[in-house]
Amino acid sequence: MLTIKDLKANVEDKNILKGLNLDIKPGEIHAIMGPNGAGKSTLGNVLSGREGYEVTGGTAELEGTDLLDLDPEERARLGLFLAFQYPVEIPGVSNLEFLKASVDSVRAAQGKDPLDSVSFLKLARAKCKLVNLDQSFLKRGVNEGFSGGEKKRNEIMQMMLLEPKICILDETDSGLDIDALQVVAEGVNSLRDPNRSFIIVTHYQRLLDYIVPDYVHVLADGKIVKSGGKELALELEEKGYGWLEDAAENGAA
């Protein structure tokens, strides 16, 4: 589904991703962990095409299509979804209007007609319920004045509406209470599908209790330095990242 080869990227002339490889097959869930500043969010931003993130080498393909040459919206329409670590507030643009515009454009790319406003409203309300957001959030500005947890639930709601192929969740669990964590997990699990894959960026093992990953990777200093099964997450929780760096250094020496 998503194949990343030797990806290198700069932010403000600083080399952040330093040759990252990742191969994600349909239906798989990959967890990415790693120390602060390692480049996890950068990976999400590079994949989704954010301005200012300059790719200096490598490739990223979604079902054989080269992502790196496309505009952000084209990537989204192909089925790439990024749940942001820090979703931006857009005052004045109502959440409802935003969601409809988004769903309509993704549908259009799939050759589907736009939904009429009444059916869309119904759909949006239903999704609101699923993520436990009050309907009034549809009327408010996009993320405007939402609490941290509400923003994250809003991200999950968008994911459910758009039904993407590859979902990247960047620390969607950070700052969530136990109930909200379950909402997120249920959202992801309800979308699990042999044709849909997930990248879950997280610092905590606890989310992985609810969403069981097929693989766990450690991203450090712009590279995947270790990969393993779900038990790797437990080991990381216990030992931190220090031992990995030591291991990496020893390995290199």
């Binding site: 301005e51 919206e73 931006v88 004045g92 515009a101 988004s102 968008q158």
Partner: peptide, 30 residues
């Protein structure tokens, strides 16, 4: 707002449409 525009684009909305939405929002906010 560049960040807002990117957010909209990352949800499949074209840059041109995003600009219109943000323009509308720019007045609507008041």
């Amino acid at each position: 707002d560049e960040q807002a525009r990117f957010y909209l684009q990352s949800r499949g909305i074209s840059a041109a449409e995003a600009d219109v939405m943000l323009s509308f929002g720019f007045i609507n906010e008041l």
